[in-house]
Structure formats: structure tokens, C-alpha cells
């Protein structure tokens, strides 16, 4: 039986790679390496990565609430220094089985049969997974960047569904989950550059405690006010938490890095005993 062996959250702030102010960042890039080493040590075979489209992939003509890529992958298509835009190892059969389970269990997800992912999926896939392609990526896009947004509760329930789907799979896959997103950040608004460490701490505390209630209790208006429009990406963290109920979390790195625009949080969530 397949099993979820760990979950992670991590940012994908392009500023960290462009680094226009040339500020020291090796310790933050090292957090991706640390996660990759953990994934390798766990013997993982698949990574389900939750991310948001940044109005790069999906146009106003078609905006899915949930989308799973079931074919070949490459990216990130929005090129970033130090992050290769190259093929990403995928497992179409596994992805399709996840889609089928979702369709039978209350989530009518859309699919992409071939996908050039953006940095939300591309950064974790290229930096936090082994470079030999031994861990296959299954991208899950949620409407966290473009409204109408996925409801917070729905994001959590999606994670619960993923947990059930994995438990129903007859393979011996070892699966890691990755919630990709900055914590507080304002993108394209007059506040851009502001970081709210208090909001970031509240989110990380919830992840460490394994209790999603403080996050689920937030309204979108509160998130926008305290965490910015980019803060809507906490949905991806909730999906990971939904799949790892009661899991104990640990912050691997956090910084309101002055060279970027995002509260940069890296954390691990281990399954409950």
C-alpha cells in the first residue's frame, strides 16, 4: 500500500533567485537542499506538489479550481536564475489514478495532459527533489492566485481526499507532499515589499502544532489584510495538513528576507504515529 511519508512547505519567491540587491541568501537556498536530502533519506518515489497559477498558465477563458497534470512536465516556464527550465520527471499513470479517485470522491478536478509548470511547481520540483528523476512529480494547481479562490476548508478537504487516495493505491509508493507558497506577501499591489512576520508566525505556529483550526478560521479578507494577496497561498499548506492530520511540524528555516517580497518559511510535517 502506498503511504505518505512526509510533508513540506516552502516558498517560491522569484526574488530569491533573481536577487536584485545581491543580498546573502545561501542559507535560504540551503533549505531547499535540506529538504531534498530529507526526501532522499525517506526513499520517496512521488511528490505531490500543491501550488497556485500566477496568471501565467491559465487565462481568463479557463480558470480551474483544482487541476492535476496527468502528462509530461517541464518548467518552470517563467525562467529564474539558477532554476533550470527542463523536463520534470512525472508519472502519468499515478496522476491519472489520483484524478480518478478525486472524481469518485467529491472533487471534479480538471486535468492537463501536458504542462509547462510555472515557478510555483517548478521551484520545488527542481530544487527540493533529487536531480536524478527518481521522485516523480504530480502537480496540483489550486485557485489561490486568481479569484474565485478555492475555499480554505475545501483546500483542507482536498488534502484529506489525497490521503484517502494514497491509502487506496495498491503500489508501494512512498509519497511526499509539498505545499508551495510564500507566507505573507503582496504581489503587484502598492504594498509590495511588505512582509508581516506576525502573520507568518501565526501560520507557522499552526503548522508546527498540527492544528489547522487557526488557519481555517481566517476569512479571505483577513488574509488579504494581514498576509496580502500572496498570503492566499496558505491553501497549499492546508492541503498538506489535511493529508497529514495530527502531524507534528518543525520549522526548518524562516526569514523575512530583505532581498525579497515574501515571508520565506520552510517546514516539515511528519505523519502522526
Amino acid at each position: 500500500m502506498a503511504k505518505i511519508v512526509s510533508g513540506y512547505i516552502m516558498p517560491h519567491d522569484p526574488s530569491l533567485f533573481v536577487n536584485p540587491q545581491n543580498i546573502e541568501r545561501d542559507h535560504l537556498l540551503g533549505a531547499y537542499t535540506l529538504i531534498r536530502e530529507k526526501v532522499e533519506a525517506l526513499g520517496a518515489t512521488k511528490a505531490i506538489i500543491f501550488g497556485a497559477d500566477h496568471y501565467i498558465l491559465f487565462s481568463p477563458r479557463c480558470l480551474p479550481q483544482f487541476l492535476i497534470a496527468t502528462g509530461e512536465l517541464h518548467g518552470p516556464i517563467d525562467r529564474l536564475p539558477g532554476v533550470a527550465n527542463s523536463p520534470i520527471a512525472s508519472d502519468p499513470a499515478f496522476a491519472r489514478s489520483l484524478v480518478d479517485y478525486a472524481h469518485g470522491n467529491g472533487f471534479d478536478v480538471a486535468v492537463a495532459r501536458d504542462l509547462g509548470v510555472d515557478h510555483a511547481i517548478g521551484v520545488p520540483a527542481q530544487l527540493a527533489l533529487p536531480t536524478d528523476g527518481s521522485v516523480k512529480t504530480i502537480p496540483v494547481y489550486m485557485a489561490s492566485g486568481v479569484e474565485p479562490y478555492v475555499r480554505l476548508q475545501r483546500a483542507y478537504e482536498f488534502g484529506q481526499m489525497v490521503r484517502e487516495a494514497v491509502a487506496a493505491m495498491p503500489t508501494d509508493d512512498r509519497i511526499v507532499l509539498m505545499g508551495s507558497g510564500g507566507i505573507s506577501h503582496w504581489v503587484g499591489t502598492g504594498e509590495m515589499g511588505r512582509i508581516n512576520p506576525e502573520f507568518d508566525e501565526k501560520v507557522l505556529d499552526a503548522i508546527v502544532s498540527g492544528d489547522p483550526a487557526p488557519l481555517l478560521a481566517m476569512t479571505d479578507q483577513e488574509i488579504m489584510r494581514d498576509g496580502g494577496n500572496g498570503g492566499m497561498e496558505i491553501r497549499h499548506f492546508l492541503a498538506v495538513m489535511g493529508a497529514l492530520p495530527g502531524g507534528s511540524g518543525e520549522v526548518l528555516a524562516y526569514e523575512a528576507w530583505p532581498g525579497g517580497v515574501t515571508g520565506l518559511g520552510f517546514a516539515e510535517i511528519l505523519p502522526s504515529a
Binding site: 500566477h54 496568471y55 492566485g145 486568481v146 503582496w186 504581489v187 503587484g188 509590495m192 494577496n229
Partner: peptide, 8 residues
């Protein structure tokens, strides 16, 4: 208009 789209 979505701010990310606007900035892009």
C-alpha cells in the same frame, strides 16, 4: 484587475 496580472 488581478494585481499579479496587472504587474505582468
Amino acid at each position: 484587475i488581478n494585481p499579479m496580472l496587472l504587474m505582468g
